[in-house]
Nucleic acid binder design. Structure first.
Lengths: 139, 139
DNA sequence: CTCGTTGCAAAAGATTTGCATTATG
DNA sequence: CATAATGCAAATCTTTTGCAACGAG
């Protein structure tokens, strides 16, 4: 837990609602997940929360930079909390497993890309496809 | 044009159909696009082609490595032809513009990430979000 | 000719929206 | 108490699938 969900909402100037706290806490539990997966986690605490509320909360939280999302693989979007230790995602195109690694491991490389392109890269959104260790060996 | 669409299909052991040629040629024209955008381009030549055929063609072509796709931004999937000069995509989160840069500029980045994680990265799928030059200056 | 491919329509899945109700500040 | 957020149901958008007709090899 970085900081209480309520505190982070307040800092961002957002209303503190039970649902938003639940979404933030759920994301901290599961690290990353689709709206559907987040709903399941939220329902462990309060089964009355609606899917469209999850979507709306995620949109609000993303606007306030409390969460971000990436497009993992071929499925639905995946959201995760923004924290002090940004990371990038590696997804295996064979088994769909997702691995997170600290952004530092690619920091210099990202600088190279920025210098080359003039682009300001947002590493929170970075997702790479490829083969994980297991599938690489198996294949 | 890298090689005639029909020739590439034949090389890959695929049946040569008008629709597949149209999809390949459309992708060469527009460089990258969603199934819907590809349909529009294909319809300039033959307005009888069905959207589901576009989806099926793309799937087939992707299986044979003639095209790949990435998840750009917040919208639908984007497909592009595979050519001899692989590139990665940079998408601006503000204006949604897409810039392609040669893979070489990220080669070291990818090596670093592979060394760190054990992952075998497929750079054809790589898309970075961030701010393009214009929006960076504007913002 | 045979079997893969296509068109069409319907189904399935994901996300968004209108509106009445509830709850925060 | 005013206004933003929520629940619910319906609408929308994207992608997939069953099936009969068509076309490549």
């Amino acid at each position: 837990m970085i900081n209480s969900a309520a505190a982070r909402l307040k800092e961002s100037g957002l209303r503190v609602t039970a649902q938003r706290e639940l979404v933030l806490n759920a994301l901290e539990q599961i690290k990353h997940g689709t709206p559907e997966e987040i709903l399941v986690e939220v329902h462990r605490i309060d089964s009355g929360v609606n899917l469209s509320t999850i979507y709306r909360c995620l949109e609000t939280l993303e606007n306030s930079k409390l969460v971000t999302h990436t497009h993992l693989g071929h499925g639905a979007n995946t959201y995760h909390v923004v924290d002090s230790d940004p990371h990038l995602h590696l997804q295996c195109s064979k088994c769909d497993s997702v691995q997170s690694i600290p952004i530092a491991s690619a920091a210099q490389a990202i600088k190279d890309i920025e210098n080359y392109s003039g682009f300001k890269v947002d590493p929170n959104y970075l997702t790479l496809d490829g083969l994980c260790v297991e599938c690489k060996q198996a294949g």
